[in-house]
Design a binder for these strands. Sequence first.
DNA 1: AAATAAATTTAGATAAGACTAAAAATTTTA
DNA 2: TAAAATTTTTAGTCTTATCTAAATTTATTT
Lengths: 218, 218
Amino acid sequence: MFSQSEENYIKAIYHLETISTKGISTNAIAKKLTTKASSVTDMIKKLSEKEVVVYKKYQGVTLTDFGKKVAANVVRKHRLWEVFLVEKLNFSWDEVHDVAEQLEHIKSPKLINEIDAFLGFPTHDPHGDPIPDKEGKINIIEKSLLSTLLKNESGICVGVNDSSSEFLQFLDKKGITLGKQITVLEKEDFDNSVSIIIDNKKMSISNKIANNLYIKKS
Amino acid sequence: MFSQSEENYIKAIYHLETISTKGISTNAIAKKLTTKASSVTDMIKKLSEKEVVVYKKYQGVTLTDFGKKVAANVVRKHRLWEVFLVEKLNFSWDEVHDVAEQLEHIKSPKLINEIDAFLGFPTHDPHGDPIPDKEGKINIIEKSLLSTLLKNESGICVGVNDSSSEFLQFLDKKGITLGKQITVLEKEDFDNSVSIIIDNKKMSISNKIANNLYIKKS
DNA sequence: AAATAAATTTAGATAAGACTAAAAATTTTA
DNA sequence: TAAAATTTTTAGTCTTATCTAAATTTATTT
C-alpha cells in the first residue's frame, strides 16, 4: 500500500516517462510536483527500496514493471473519476482535475470496478486520454498535434496536451470539443498560426493552441 | 480547512455528543478513534485554538457552533456517499463504511451537492441514520431500541446502533432490513430475548441484537 | 479524609514528508 | 580540458500526528 504522496510521485514519473524514454531526472519530477529537488531525492530513495523505481545516484529513475502497474492503476482511477464527474455529475471538462486528484487515492478495488461498470467501461477520459484497464494496459491511438498537420489535412479532435482550465475554457468558447472534425485550410509561416474549418466555420488558431490540441488524422 | 485527522476527531466528538450531553472525555475520544489519550490531548489543544471545541484541562471538550457545523458537514458527506455506494454501485450496507470513511474527506462543495442531487436528496443513509442538510440541520425521528418495546407493541425498523459488518450481515441472514414491520410477541425475563413477528414469521431475537436495532413505534 | 485508582496531561521520541543551505557530482561552455 | 553553470545529494530543521513513560489531577474507596 502506498501513501498519497508516494502515489503522486509514482504517477508523476509515469507521466514523464511517456514523454522522455530516458531516466527521469530529479529536477523534472520536482518541477512536475512543484516541490524541491531535495524532497524528490528523499522520496525516490524510499520508492527505490520499495522496488517501485530503479535509482542510481545522479542518474535519475525508471519505473519497474511493478511501479508501472501501480502508476497505471492510479491513472486509471483518476480518469474513471473524471468520466464520472462529467457524465453523471454535470462537471465540465475544466473542473474535474482537482477533484479527481483527490479521488484517485481512494483505496477500494470494488469501488473503482463498480464505477467502471456504472459508466459502461469507458475507454477515454473527458480530455481524450486513454483509461488503463485493470492490468494497466492502455490502447494508444495514433494522434498528432494540430500544429503538425499540413495544409488540407484533416482529422478529428481527440485530445488535449494541456488540461488547464484556462485552455479548456478557451476551447469551449471557440466551440472546439472532442470528436469535432477539423480541416487545415492554411498555415501561416509568419506566426505559425493555422486557419482551420470546424462546423463549417473558418477560424484562425494560434500556434500556442495548435500545439496543445491532438488530432487523429483521417 | 481541516486535515483528515482533524476531521476525524471532530466527527468523533460530534458522535459522542449525541450520546452524552456532558463534556466529552479524552478517554472516550481515544477509545472511539483507537488512539492514545495523549494523542487526543494534543489534538484537542489544536482544535481549541482553532475554535472548533471548548476545552478546559481535565474537563473534556464540547464542540462550538462552528465545530458542530464542520462535523455535520463531514457526517453529511459520509452518509451521502454511503447512499451512493448502495443505490448506484451495488454495495451492501455492511460494505460501505470503510470506503465512506475515505470519501468523506474529499474537498469539493460542488461534488457533494451534485451527489446529493444525483441521489434525489436522500434524507437517510443505508443504516437509517439521518443525513444533515447543507446547514448541518438534521431531522431527528422518535425511535426506540427493540429491547425497550413492550409486549404486543409494534413498529418499523428504522436504524441500527451498531454498523459493524458482522451485525449487519447477521440482520441480512435473518431477513431484517430497514422498513420492515416488527411486532413483539413475548419478552423473556430469563435472557432478555424477545420473540417477534416479521414478514408473518416468528423468530427469537437475543438481547444483544435487540439492543442494537431501532424501531419507530406505530 | 486519606489512600488508592483512574483519567489526563506533560515531556520527550519517532516517522513521514517537506524545506533551506551547503557540498558534491555532472554537464556545459569557452 | 579547465572553468563555470547546473543538477543532485547531503545534512540539518520543521510540522503533523503519533507514541511511551512519567507526572499530575480528579474520582473513588474504605
